[in-house]
């Protein structure tokens, strides 16, 4: 009953990941303490938010917020009953994800907000994110656009299969959930969006915080997903990578139809 189970004989990478995980959690604990203390120091004495001056980016974000978001999420992002949830503590990651993928601002209240053409540019989304971040804190994305190149594809594949494929399917094409909900396809998702989705667990997606999947784990998964999407199929057209359903359709629509026509030509018709 030790942490070093025989399965670890698999090799060094796993050892490393265990050390990394511990190191990370220690660091995170420290960071969280500092952060919590900091927040308290800022918020408590003043008794009101906005006491600290906003950075220029957050100011720009606030301007956008006051035009497009305020009607549902309220004046201080504290939410409006029946219209939109509080955004205090959701972090810039969640804001960037929702805005960049066009899910927010939502056109209407639905069971599930769908990806659509975004209303804001990515820069504006980050400004909005900065505003919400400075308002209430929460998870943030790492710097940079390219996470895929930092990851290990094979390890990412293992993590993807155990954590992600049950909803997003082995192909990343998404799948149905209960009662009309669905896990969306990962096809249009950028590195940052995938990272943000894991970090914040939008809608019905479970949260994969840095405790469950370390940032390196997330890079690995992103590397696997982006490779999955960019790697072309070696066996011809992939039939949408839907699996046996489209294969079954193909054998009838192509195979059987072609051969029935051949039979019609070879033998008499009636």
């Amino acid at each position: 009953m030790t942490p070093d189970t025989p399965r670890l004989a698999a090799g060094a990478p796993k050892q490393r990941s265990r050390v990394r995980r511990r190191l990370n959690s220690a660091l995170r604990m420290f960071a969280a303490l500092v952060f919590a203390g900091g927040i308290y120091a800022i918020v408590a004495p003043g008794g009101a938010q906005g006491a600290a001056p906003l950075t220029p980016a957050a100011e720009a974000g606030k301007a956008l917020y006051d035009v497009s978001c305020i009607s549902c999420h309220g004046a201080n992002a504290q939410g409006v009953e029946g219209r939109g949830p509080s955004l205090i503590g959701v972090g810039s990651a969640a804001v960037e994800f929702q805005v960049e993928t066009g899910r927010m601002p939502a056109a209407r209240q639905e069971a599930q907000a769908e990806r659509k053409d975004p209303m804001f540019t990515n820069d504006q989304a980050r400004q909005l994110g900065a505003f919400i971040q400075e308002l209430g804190g929460g998870p943030q994305l790492p710097e940079g656009e390219d996470f895929a190149s930092k990851g290990d594809i094979a390890r990412g594949g293992e993590l993807y299969r155990i954590n992600c494929s049950s909803c997003h399917a082995f192909s990343g094409g998404g799948g149905a959930l209960s009662s009309g909900k669905f896990a969306p396809t990962l096809e249009p998702a950028t590195d940052r969006q995938i990272y943000a989705a894991m970090l914040t667990g939008p809608q019905n997606m479970p949260v994969f915080g840095d405790n469950e999947l370390t940032p390196q784990d997330k890079f690995d998964i992103i590397a696997y997903v982006q490779n999955l999407k960019s790697d072309s199929d070696p066996g011809g057209w992939g039939l949408g990578r839907f699996g046996p359903v489209t294969e079954g359709l193909a054998i009838f629509l192509v195979g059987v139809v072609a051969l029935v026509f051949a039979a019609l030509w070879i033998a008499g018709k009636s």
Binding site: M1, P3, A10, S17, S25, I162, G201, E212
Partner: peptide, 24 residues
Amino acid sequence: DDGTLVRPEHVSTGGQITVFPNIP
């Protein structure tokens, strides 16, 4: 799945992970 042990803080609120018995 990689053999590391699980602490409560490994799972965020609203999160889930797949765990296994820590036996050979």
